[in-house]
């Protein structure tokens, strides 16, 4: 009788231990998502996005191959690659925010309380929509720019205080940028719900003029 009770107790403890070992293991295990867990809608969006990116990559390869062919011919003729170097210099000065730039785009005026996380999200969204150059008031946003909260509701861009109201200007395809920012459920719509005392005005611009990145 005593032996039976003892056996049952051992079994119960062992059963509980088995459950606990697995539960503990799983709670410590990180959860790695896989694409199979996405909805068909999300997968379709991802396919569209990857298609778009692959198209951009093909265009870039095609463009660079033409430049390689031209440079090859210039080097073969002993002329050097001045034209190609100058072209690349201009392109990289824009891409690294080292030069003053002009071009079409949009401006987003933010008049009222706003914060650094929202500014970072806005810049991220503009980049996602294809912005080629961005500035917050007169502070150009560069490849390594960071944002923080300043004193008295100011925002900080790369360590420099930027006082509101803020105008975030971005150069790029103005229609694409405008639609990306103002679409239903887009970032500006979300901001309008979150920052109800703040006015957000998005305007298409024919010619914006952005300063170069401040010396870092």
């Amino acid at each position: 009788m005593r032996s039976r009770v003892g056996g049952a107790a051992v079994a119960a403890v062992a059963l509980l231990l088995g459950v606990l070992v697995v539960s503990q293991f799983r709670s410590r295990d990180v959860y790695s998502r896989s694409l199979e867990q996405e909805t068909p809608e999300s997968l379709t969006t991802l396919i569209a996005d990857l298609n778009d990116r692959n198209r951009q990559l093909r265009e870039e390869i095609f463009d660079l191959q033409l430049r390689v062919d031209r440079a090859q011919s210039q080097v073969s003729g002993g002329q050097g690659t001045l034209e190609e170097s100058q072209r690349q210099l201009e392109q990289l000065e824009v891409f690294s925010a080292q030069s003053r730039v002009t071009g079409p785009g949009i401006s987003i005026r933010v008049d009222g309380p706003f914060d650094d996380h929202a500014l970072s999200d806005l810049v991220n969204e503009l980049r996602n929509a294809g912005a080629e150059a961005i500035a917050v008031n007169d502070a150009r946003v560069g490849p390594r720019s960071w944002f923080a909260a300043g004193a008295n509701g100011d925002l900080v861009v790369d360590g420099t205080g930027v006082r509101g109201p803020w105008t975030v200007r971005s150069i790029g395809a103005s229609d694409v940028l405008y639609v990306a920012m103002t679409r239903t459920g887009g970032i500006v719509g979300q901001f309008q719900l979150i920052y109800q005392r703040t006015r957000f005005t998005v305007t298409r611009e024919n010619a914006l003029d952005l300063p170069p990145l401040a010396a870092q």
């Binding site: 430049r67 210039q74 002329q79 050097g80 001045l82 190609e84 170097s85 690349q88 210099l89 080292q98």
Partner: peptide, 28 residues
């Protein structure tokens, strides 16, 4: 393209000067 630019820099002094700027911009 980088290889050709290095070859071009050897042929042209202006390209040689631009190469240093290009290297810096690529890094940035």
């Amino acid at each position: 393209l980088d290889q050709l630019q290095r070859a071009g820099a050897a042929q042209n002094g202006t390209v040689r000067d631009l190469s240093a700027q290009l290297d810096d911009l690529k890094r940035r």
